[in-house]
Nucleic acid binder design. Structure first.
Length: 502
RNA sequence: GACCCGUUGGUCAAGUUGGUUAAGACACCAGCCUUUCACGCUGGUAACGUGGGUUCAAAUCCCGCACGGGUCACCA
């Protein structure tokens, strides 16, 4: 790398941060950090009609949550390159300056075709089974024709004139060498709309050029745009950045690009946050969508990914979104995280109150301290067997409302009634005068002692307790669950269980 | 239809210059551990779309076919 690396993530604020957006942002981020370069955030908002309110803010918030940050952007302008919104750049006449230059040099021209005419043309071509293309009529238009169109008040767009039978090629980090023929691009294309806005394929070139972007990493859906952009670079007489087309994310169920209509897959980063996925896991997982490191290791921290990142290892085949794998990875992170850290994360979700699970916990009306204490106990029990934080929240709610739960005592039938009663009564006697902060260890000793006293051990001792305290004969360490309950609750649960046997 | 790209076990996915016992993960199965569940550990089943080449040797290179995908806007 001879030049200082500069990359950019350039979303259009037409929606919220989608998993594909995040992937593209993340690889730019890894690229920048790996090569000690600069990450730029640029907002491509030239399609005014499609911009959504808060789209931009939301993108930035979710990027921050994920841990993808940038060095330059609307919020951190570098005077040398600002502004970072294309609409603002357009107001400064940045794009038109270059459009005019190309017109003056005869490389671009005004096109007075109306929208209706274009549409008609395309339909006719499609009907004939031809590829829709613009024939370049106004490139050769006579002065009379132009005057006539002007007189009608038609506002022209500007098109770039493409050289004939010309090879447009590049070396792609992911795809290797790619080449297109200029004759297959659909004809001369618009670079300035008749409302004065630059088109995407033009603005992106001007901005990447002016912002000294060295490497352009973007989704593979841009492959077909790249030759057009290279044509603009060539018309301008400047070098283009090194391109990298990132594998698209596919839905294994449909075999197609992940679509916003795929209801079975969470689409937006905010949804993953809400559902209790850890940002570390999401970051790790997305980094493996379209890229893989050397070796067998799969759990990578952000720092490790930055170090290991190598653009030569970008994949050229589709990246399938494997929900099971993501869940597994999230579970790995949950297992490794400290109880305190997990409690903090869950408390944040509770305060954000943005899921059914958070809602239920808030309805408990517990103080933050009490809820946190409860969560820590529950985390300790379930950290090893959940995929998502909301499952821990569910368990916490279940234990907190255990007296209201409809527990099944059916499994008592598998055990000797007298022995079971002896165990339950023995535990009740041993427990009733204890304090609420009795430790799991103390409960463990207590269970063993009662077992000895009534001469019952093994499954005959533990299963009835599992049933009494959770409604199921299989449960995690029952002494830890007992420590979650206030003693009064424990006693009531034992009474209910005993009553069910009589 | 045109132009580009892809095709490795049930799923995801390594395999950058042709020679590998064709990694690894998820899932599944078995064993161990454990009061049970889960975790963890050990082991196991299972793959190069198809037809032709080139070569001593092809998952890897070339051509055809099939299948899949992306893009064909005054959207980005």
């Amino acid at each position: 790398m001879d030049k200082k690396v500069r990359v950019r993530y350039a979303p259009s604020p037409t929606g919220f941060l989608h998993i594909g957006n995040a992937q593209s942002a993340l690889f730019n981020y890894l690229f920048a950090r790996h090569f000690n370069g600069t990450m730029v955030l640029r907002i491509e908002d030239t399609d005014i009609a499609r911009n959504v309110p808060h789209g931009e803010e939301s993108q930035m918030e979710n990027l921050h949550w994920l841990g993808v940050d940038w060095d330059e952007g609307p919020d951190k302008p570098n005077p040398k390159y600002a502004p970072y919104h294309q609409t603002e750049r357009n107001k400064e006449g940045i794009y038109h300056k270059y459009v005019q230059k190309l017109i003056d040099e005869g490389k671009a021209y005004y096109d007075y075709t109306t929208e209706e005419e274009l549409q008609k043309m395309r339909e006719e071509q499609k009907a004939k089974g031809e590829t829709p293309r613009y024939g370049g009529h106004w490139y050769n238009a006579s002065q009379e024709e132009i005057d006539a169109a002007k007189a009608k008040g038609i506002k022209p767009s500007v098109r770039l004139h493409l050289p004939k039978d010309h090879t447009l090629e590049w070396d792609d980090w992911a795809l290797g060498h790619i080449s297109f023929n200029s004759d297959n691009l659909g004809g001369d294309f618009v670079i300035e709309k008749n409302n004065g806005m630059p088109t995407y394929n033009f603005a992106v070139v001007i901005d990447d050029y002016l912002m000294d972007i060295t490497d352009c990493l973007r989704g593979a859906d841009h492959i077909a745009n790249t030759p057009k952009q290279i044509a603009v670079y060539e018309a301008l007489g400047v070098d283009h950045p090194h391109f990298c087309h990132i594998s698209l994310i596919f839905n294994p169920a449909t075999g197609k690009k992940l679509s916003k209509r795929d209801k079975n897959t969470l689409q937006f980063i905010s949804q993953y946050h809400r559902h209790g996925y850890l940002k570390e896991a999401i970051f790790n997982f997305i980094a493996f969508l379209g890229w893989s490191p050397v070796g067998e290791k799969e759990i990578y921290s952000k720092e490790e990914l930055i170090k290991a990142y190598d653009p030569n290892r970008m994949s050229n085949s589709p990246a399938y979104f494997d929900q099971h794998k993501l869940d597994w990875m999230n579970a790995e992170y949950i297992k490794k995280m400290s109880v305190d850290e997990l409690a903090d994360r869950i408390m944040t979700l509770v305060h954000e109150n943005d899921s059914e699970e958070a809602n239920k916990l808030n309805d408990l009306k517990m103080s933050d301290d009490d809820l946190r204490a409860l969560l820590k106990k529950v985390i300790h029990i379930h950290q090893r067997d959940v995929y998502k934080l909301i499952e821990i929240m569910d368990y916490a709610w279940f234990y907190a409302t255990i007296l209201d739960q409809d527990l099944s005592y059916d499994d008592f039938a598998n055990f000797d009634k007298d022995e079971t009663l002896a165990v339950l009564n023995g535990i009740k006697d041993a427990v009733k005068d204890l304090s609420d902060d009795t430790t799991p260890d103390a409960y463990n000793d207590l269970i063993k002692k009662v077992g000895k006293d009534v001469n019952v051990k093994g499954q005959k001792l533990y299963f009835p307790l599992n049933i009494a305290f959770t409604g199921k004969s299989s449960a995690p360490q029952i002494n830890e669950i007992m420590a979650v309950y206030p003693v009064a609750t424990t006693v009531k649960l034992l009474d209910k269980a005993i009553a069910s046997l009589n």
